[in-house]
Design a protein around this nucleic acid. Structure first.
Lengths: 227, 227
DNA sequence: CTTCGTTCTTAACCATTCATTAATCATCTC
DNA sequence: GAGATGATTAATGAATGGTTAAGAACGAAG
């Protein structure tokens, strides 16, 4: 299972450390340095966790957090706040704003990683089934990294697996090729659009070409059939 | 079976809520309000899980946790920390002290219950009750540090043994190389990825190369075959 | 303290699989 | 029908995993 983590942090040096370590832990990492961009990203990507700096250009972290928590789509995304100052109001307000946990700068990396994992674990069990999606006889299981189609196990490559997960996580919603690539590969997703087509082709083939569960939305991208 | 849960918490109001809800879930609940008493209780009772407040009269929670984890009898008891403030170093140390999970106050009851159950589930196979696992003719016995394959005793090195235990504790779930290394070597697992491959290779060889009980999950890690 | 044997790790190399690209064909839209 | 967009295929190169052997680290015994 490789959860998507969105990091919204303007300080390059801090972001670097965080991103590097998250990647080392096997997460797919997305980094936005501006508050507004971060919010937009969160709403399209719907990450598994959002790591959010309190002080940001654009909008400040609290605003973002509040907006995330009041939007039905992102309501369930656990938010970990990164606050510059320890103590006082900032922090307390952080919790009223709906942040699920927070860490004060300066922080050490290892504990931060632990807490991120703990937070993910927490939200996993809380809304059980977040690691298992099922629709149209397709079952995708992130815990066991397995896909079954009408009971039969399918062998997917890592990229295919992540793309299918993305598509199935929001059935009916079309994803641009870029979005698809980013949710499966993270930040540094710079490939030609045809590349994604090839992966879709492979997926369709493995799912059996008969019923097209992955639909093409001309001019936009692809989507998983809702019904 | 009704697991024993030891709650060490000095605030009456909080303890009430926790105890009430745990009982409602069918657990046998023990409550100590003082740190020192709690420690003694833990050592005599050996509960299936210990819910531990960070700030306590007597000894503080971290001390207790550390003592629990350094005592052979209570080493395996999963500890869930209850911390007053998030973000502080206190907490961060909490993980270094060996706590298995933690929750920050104020907490909501339902998620706490979920996480307690999750922690129990996790440690059922991994830690507490079970010291013997059996699957596909392989029998691994932690008390005697012995492995049998179709009756025949296998000679495994310590690392191989721990890795096999980890893998078999959750058949079907793939473990990243990092996870595998951490569970067999502890926190500071700092080795190349090939190192793990070498151990897997050795394990596979000893298990007989014919049927691959340890499966490779490309891009993720390894898992023990579920079926 | 040295020696020996075991176990763990590293490094180097090989094998396989996967992602990407490019090239060509098909289909849709205006 | 022309231009744009998507589908398909095969080729390549990069990423990933497998394997082996050598030597570092550790511990036990002399």
């Amino acid at each position: 299972m490789q959860p998507n983590i969105l990091v919204i942090e303007d300080e390059q040096s801090i972001a670097d450390v965080i991103v590097y370590n998250l990647q080392k832990e096997g997460f797919i990492v997305h980094w936005e340095r501006d508050g507004r961009d971060g919010l937009l990203k969160a709403q399209t990507l719907i990450p598994d966790l959002c790591l959010l700096d309190l002080m940001l250009p654009g909008i400040d972290g609290l605003q973002i957090c509040r907006l995330l928590k009041s939007d039905a789509r992102t309501k369930a995304v656990p938010v970990m706040m990164l606050t510059a100052r320890s103590g006082e109001t900032d922090e307390i307000v952080g919790f009223n704003m709906g942040a699920d946990d927070y860490v004060t700068k300066p922080f050490r990396v290892q504990p931060l990683m632990h807490r991120i994992k703990a937070l993910l674990r927490r939200s996993d069990t809380a809304e059980a089934g977040k690691n298992l999606l099922e629709l149209h006889g397709i079952e995708i299981d992130r815990t066991n990294h397995a896909v079954r189609y009408n009971g039969a196990e399918l062998e997917l490559t890592p990229t295919e697996f992540r793309m299918l997960w993305t598509l199935m996580s929001q059935p009916g919603r079309p994803f641009s090729r870029n979005e698809l690539m980013e949710t499966s590969r993270g930040e540094d997703a710079n490939s030609l659009e045809r590349t994604i087509d090839v992966h879709v082709r492979a997926l369709r083939k493995k799912l059996g070409d008969t019923t097209d569960l992955i639909e093409t939305v001309r001019g936009i991208g692809y989507r998983f059939a809702r019904k």
